[in-house]
């Protein structure tokens, strides 16, 4: 009974992506999802649509225009001052109203704190299936969404289907999917709906927002180059070797989980399943064994250089290049060699 799509749900059509707009800025995971959504929409032969929620003045126009550049055919927009700061109540209402009215078959959201908060509430309200943190999305033979996600820390993958409910919902973590190139000439149709809520109906109030720039939060997920250290660094003061190299490269720096647990680095710098997923052009991992939980957060890097004293370390199974050696010697040597290489390059260019 739970594997057949009931008749009244057969009208659900099109692939939707939630465009996460906050404080005038779109979270790039939205463009990653539109890129992925394009493939799903093409496989189904349906439209790709973006959903933009926010106050009119603060960037909704720009977000709508950009959704078209990232290949949306249509954008559903609810523009209301009550959507200025993220709050669950008005966002859940806006999204569930849109879904009930326009009936998408697939709805994707970024697995950010905002996206997960919203997705869980929306899926429960709509009584539909929600697959968390997908790493692969595909359309199967009966046109259902096959959503694949890691289980048990990535040692296995499982494919989850929502055959008898609509929309089929999924979240995807930032940087798990690749972002396509925008086509600035593209445009499309905008469908505007109203929120139908007044401030008095919303119980939760935002008293303040303390931005991270004030507290030096790391921006690992979107860094071009990341340098990270693991337990092979041996002592907390050796973290400086990682920071030195990162500084010469203008890179972000991060670590494996035990360093966070020991208090050597802050949690926002942890790379892996329970930390950040990174997708840099270059990832340098020093003294990191390459446990599965670390691997799932870092193997999307274009190029990985691993430094490890153990030639059998699992990290060499997924790194592109390896140096077998002592990270405490190799890191300062790399810093020095890069410094020289870069100054030569700057003199030349």
């Amino acid at each position: 009974k739970t594997t057949e799509l009931p008749e009244h749900l057969k009208a659900y059509k099109n692939v939707w992506v939630f465009v996460e707009l906050e404080h005038g800025r779109v979270h790039p995971v939205s463009w990653e999802l539109l890129t992925e959504g394009r493939k799903l929409a093409d496989a189904l032969g349906v439209d790709l649509c973006g959903v933009v929620l926010g106050p009119k003045a603060e960037g909704t126009d720009q977000a709508i225009a950009e959704a078209f550049h990232y290949s949306a055919n249509r954008v559903y927009a609810v523009e209301d001052p009550l959507l200025a700061e993220y709050r669950n109540e008005p966002y859940t209402k806006a999204m569930t109203d849109l879904v009930n009215k326009h009936k998408p078959e697939i709805l994707m959201l970024g697995a950010t704190t905002l996206g997960r908060d919203l997705a869980g509430a929306v899926a429960t309200t709509l009584q539909t299936g929600l697959t968390a943190d997908c790493t692969e999305l595909a359309i199967d033979a009966d046109k259902s969404l096959a959503a694949t996600r890691p289980t048990f820390g990535g040692s296995l993958l499982c494919t989850i289907m929502t055959r008898a409910a609509r929309p089929q919902m999924s979240t995807v973590r930032p940087r798990v999917m690749a972002m396509g190139d925008p086509d600035r000439s593209r445009s499309g149709e905008v469908v505007r709906e109203s929120l139908g809520m007044v401030e008095d109906e919303i119980v939760t109030k935002v008293l303040d927002f303390i931005p991270d720039s004030d507290t030096n939060q790391a921006q690992l997920a979107y860094a071009d180059i990341v340098v990270a250290g693991g337990m092979g660094l041996q002592r907390p003061e050796n973290i400086q070797l990682v920071i030195d190299l990162a500084q010469v490269l203008g890179a972000e720096y991060g670590c494996s989980r035990p360093l966070v647990q020991k208090g050597w680095m802050t949690a926002d710098r942890q790379i892996g399943q329970t930390g950040k997923t990174i997708r840099p052009r270059l990832y340098i991992a020093a003294g990191i064994s390459g446990a599965i939980q670390h691997r799932v957060g870092s193997e999307g890097a274009d190029q990985i250089l691993a430094i490890n004293s153990d030639p059998n370390a699992p990290i060499f199974d997924f790194a592109h290049h390896g140096i077998i050696g002592d990270a405490l010697e190799i890191l300062p040597a790399l810093t020095e060699a890069f410094r020289k290489r870069l100054s030569v390059d700057r003199l030349a260019g």
Binding site: T2, L156, M161, A319
Partner: peptide
């Protein structure tokens, strides 16, 4: 339980190992 669950696990499998190991410098 299972009856009230719209999501169903359709398969479980091991991740594809990368074809090549790291090239050592």
């Amino acid at each position: 339980g299972m009856k009230g669950s719209p999501t169903k696990v359709s398969k479980v499998f091991a991740p594809q190992p990368r074809a090549e190991k790291a090239k050592m410098i």
